[in-house]
């Protein structure tokens, strides 16, 4: 299964599921609109992952990105 940590810069992907993330982290991600089904874009992959949800840039570290299952959007 593809995770956010596998995605290259400038690719757009859709969030499939976020299992295994702790309640507090998931809540924090929801705060930025990172729900299942949302389409996001990867802006950069170093030093941490930076993604764009709507017009928000969000940086998250790899330990979180590895637990976000994604699919490459159509």
């Amino acid at each position: 299964m593809l995770t956010l940590a596998d995605i290259k810069q400038d690719q757009s992907i859709r969030i499939v599921a976020m299992p295994e993330l702790s309640e507090s982290v998931r809540k924090h991600l929801h705060a930025y609109g990172l729900f299942t089904g949302r389409t996001i874009r990867v802006l950069s992959t170093r030093p941490e992952m930076t993604i764009q949800i709507e017009e928000t840039e969000l940086a998250l570290e790899y330990s979180v990105a590895r637990h976000i299952l994604v699919e490459v959007s159509r």
Binding site: L58, L60, E61
Partner: peptide, 12 residues
């Protein structure tokens, strides 16, 4: 307690 991973908004 667990380490909190970094999740932070980058405002413009």
């Amino acid at each position: 307690g667990e380490r909190q991973p970094l999740v932070v908004e980058l405002p413009p």
